[in-house]
Design a protein around this nucleic acid. Structure first.
Lengths: 165, 165
DNA sequence: CCTTAACTTCACAAATTTCTGAAACAAGCG
DNA sequence: CGCTTGTTTCAGAAATTTGTGAAGTTAAGG
C-alpha cells in the first residue's frame, strides 16, 4: 500500500534523524524545541513546513512551535513565509542562509569583544591581566575578519561542487 | 592604605568584568559556573588560581568550583596543575590554548557531521532532504579544514603583533 | 600509620527553563 | 460585519538544571 503524500518517506527514519541531530544542537547550547523544529525543517523535502505540520510531527502544542519559530527567526535560521491569501504561515530553511547564521554569529562575537574591551580598560592595558584580555580581544577581531573571507570561499566552493555538479 | 597583595587591583572592576563577560558566555550556551570560573581566571594577573581563591572570589562552595573546573578541563579551556609537594591544585588558562579550544570545538563539529551523515544515508542521498543534509555536511567538513588553517595564520599574526611587539 | 588539608561525589533544595491549555488576537471569507 | 481558522500570549505545572552541605576519597606530613 502507498503511503500518504506527506509521509511518503520512512517517518521512523526521519524522526530518528530529527531527534538525534536536535540532541546534538541542544548539547551545543540551543533550546530544545528550537533545535527540534530546526532539525525537522532540515529533514523535510520541501525545506518548509507549516505550524500545524510541525506540531503534528513533533507532537507538541502550537504554542511550543510558536516560541521555537520566534527564536529561530530572530537568529536568522529560518524565515517566515505568508502564503498569499491564507492565514497559514510556512517556516523555511533557506539551505544556504542558515549556516551563514551559524558561523557569522556576529552579535555574539561583537558582545564578547565589547566585554573584553571594557575589561582591558578597567584592569589596565599594562597589567598582565589586561594584556591577556587584549590578546583575546585581538583573536576575536581577527576571527571576525577571517570568517567573512572564509564564507566567501565556501560559497565559491559550494557552487563548484553543487552548483554545476 | 595599601591593599592586600592578592587584591592589589580594584576588585570592584575585576568583579564587574568577570560577571559581565561570564554573562555573555552563558548567553552563548556555557554553564553559568563554568563561565564565571573561566572569566575569573582570564582576569587574574597570573592566569592561574587555586580552588580556594576561586571559591572565595566568586562566593561559591568548593563543590561548585570542582564541577566547573571538571567541565573546563574536559573542553580544554583550562589545565590543572599539581603544585609539587602540596595537595593544592591550580587551574590555569594558557592564554593561547584556550581560544584554540573555543574555535576548534572538534568534538562538537564531529558529532554534528556524524548525525548528518546518518541522516543522508537514511533519508536517501537522492532525495531533496538528503541533498540538503549533504550540503550542510559539506559545509561543516569545509569549515573543519579551514579552521585549522585559520588558526595557523592567527598564530603567525599573533607572534608578529605580540611576540616582538 | 595516623592526621589533616584539599578535592570530589552525592542527595537534595532552590531556581530556572520549558511546555501546555486557555484565552486573546488577527485576518481571510462568506 | 461576524464567523472561522490559524497564531500568539500568558499563567502555571512539570521537568530540568544548578549549587549546597555533608560524607567520602586521596595524599602530604608528621
Amino acid at each position: 500500500m502507498t503511503e500518504p503524500s506527506t509521509a511518503g518517506r520512512d517517518s521512523r527514519a526521519v524522526s530518528k534523524f530529527v531527534e538525534g541531530f536536535a540532541a546534538q544542537l541542544v548539547e551545543a547550547g540551543m533550546q530544545r524545541m528550537a533545535a527540534r523544529v530546526f532539525a525537522a525543517l532540515l529533514a523535510s523535502d520541501s525545506g518548509a513546513m507549516t505550524s500545524a505540520e510541525l506540531g503534528d510531527q513533533l507532537r507538541v502544542s502550537p504554542a511550543a512551535v510558536s516560541g521555537a519559530v520566534r527564536y529561530l527567526a530572530q537568529v536568522h535560521m529560518v524565515s517566515r513565509e505568508r502564503e498569499p491569501g491564507s492565514r497559514r504561515e510556512r517556516y523555511r530553511v533557506h539551505s544556504d542562509q542558515w549556516y551563514e547564521a551559524v558561523t557569522s554569529r556576529d552579535a555574539v562575537l561583537t558582545r564578547w569583544e565589547q566585554s573584553l574591551r571594557e575589561g582591558v580598560d578597567s584592569l589596565g592595558a599594562g597589567t598582565p591581566a589586561g594584556e591577556r584580555l587584549a590578546e583575546t580581544l585581538a583573536f576575536f577581531e581577527y576571527l571576525d575578519g577571517e570568517l567573512v573571507q572564509l564564507m566567501a570561499r565556501w560559497r565559491e566552493h559550494r557552487d563548484r561542487t553543487f552548483g554545476k555538479g
